[in-house]
Design a protein around this nucleic acid. Structure first.
Lengths: 224, 224
DNA sequence: CGATAGCTTGAGAGTACTCAAAGTGGGTGG
DNA sequence: CCACCCACTTTGAGTACTCTCAAGCTATCG
């Protein structure tokens, strides 16, 4: 969900649990392209992504789609409102999720540390969404894609020698629906960044950041 | 903050407190055009708007602005992340705010009912922001403005005979920065809705909804 | 009553969209 | 194992919506 937040994570590390106590519920494992829940479903548990990537989506009646967030390891998905899900959640890759009972979010009687962690996750989510607003409302296509890649590089980039590499498990259409663009525009913008020599592509699903400074500059609006 | 949420409030009523216990802190009163806090400020208390309207803003280095939310009576403003504010908050009108200590959000030891209310407010905020995403990312100028007016009509509209009236304490520029448009486009879109006979304007700051069904249709994308 | 900030309208430009076609690659079946 | 197929991606051409720049208008405040 926090593929929007610019600063490195100060909160929950991806490989740690949310509480010192052992989790009460077993891990949920899902194959790629599976639904975890749908919009309108009753919320019984919320999940921390332990490995893999999920997608949170909202739909308009006429089929327009907005991807609210991509959930990477460490992220919490499934925050309820009035007891129901208001997005749908699908897996992009094979995924492992740690479920938590909703009651642990709602009160801290049984496990105060877990409760506090879940609350912090909710607050982090609010902060992340505020960044995403700026991106959707006020950035150009190039700035949007550059911001997206920059955040991913910070969160899940892998240093390979001189450069940073990132895997993109999602399609161009997913990226478009996350950034408020069309697939064609996303594709064209990738090509621009490639011609810029800011990035290189290794297949469609692997991006190599060749010039991180330039990427950051483009993300903030230095057109050049 | 929830000038984004489509369904009527099921949560906190504007004129009720968040807990059965009397609030410990006195009301904060502010004149129009005053800052409540700035981005980066340390969060010590969060506030419930009791009367008036506030604006939550985020800024980009080059001056681009995104309004994250308008805070109306009942709304909670000032949710922290890592202990700090990540928006700035200014008053649009004379405002009364009920402050709550941050500790009441963070744990329920001293007042569980208040704690639960604040948590619900955070979850409602997440839900509201998800609606706002759809608006910013996937709607046209007309759909955006129609959605905005429809939500305001539900939340703060006043029935005057046949029609519903809404006050807009914010400027056209504020509306533009909320919807991800320019002031010119907002103004032109108001004019379109006026020619449509969907709305009428009584000065710049009062809108009369003449055809609510048409407004709702336009909000969802029925171009006509 | 005049000054000024905010709003509206107009004309033209630019970015992203739509529609269309060609290219690429992963997966399946022969 | 290779070839075909289909879904996804890329590129192209033209369009449209919103933006920019600019000028007039309105209303609010001193």
């Amino acid at each position: 969900m926090y593929v929007t937040i610019s600063s490195p994570h100060e909160g929950v590390a991806s490989d740690k649990g949310l509480s010192d106590r052992p989790p009460t519920l077993p891990l949920t494992r899902l194959a790629p392209e599976r639904h975890l829940y749908y919009e309108g479903d009753k919320v019984e548990r919320i999940y921390q992504v332990k490995s893999g990537v999920v997608r949170l989506t909202r739909l308009l009646e006429d089929g327009r789609r907005q991807i609210i967030a991509f959930g990477y390891p460490g992220d919490i998905v499934g925050f309820p409102f009035n007891g129901h899900h208001h997005t749908e959640c699908e897996t992009l890759t094979r995924v492992e999720l740690q479920p938590y009972l909703l009651t642990h979010l709602e009160n801290g009687r049984s496990d105060p540390a877990l409760h506090a962690s879940l609350l912090q996750a909710a607050l982090r989510e609010i902060a992340a969404m505020q960044d995403h607003f700026m991106m959707l409302g006020r950035k150009t296509a190039q700035e949007k894609l550059a911001s997206f890649l920059a955040v991913l590089a910070d969160r899940v980039g892998i240093k390979t020698g001189e450069f940073t590499q990132i895997a993109l498990p999602m399609s161009r259409a997913d990226i478009a629906d996350f950034l408020g663009l069309t697939t064609e525009t996303v594709s064209r913008t990738f090509s621009q960044l490639r011609k810029n020599k800011t990035i290189a592509l290794n297949g469609v699903h692997v991006v190599i950041i060749r010039n991180r400074a330039a990427l950051n500059a483009l993300a903030e609006g230095d057109h050049g």
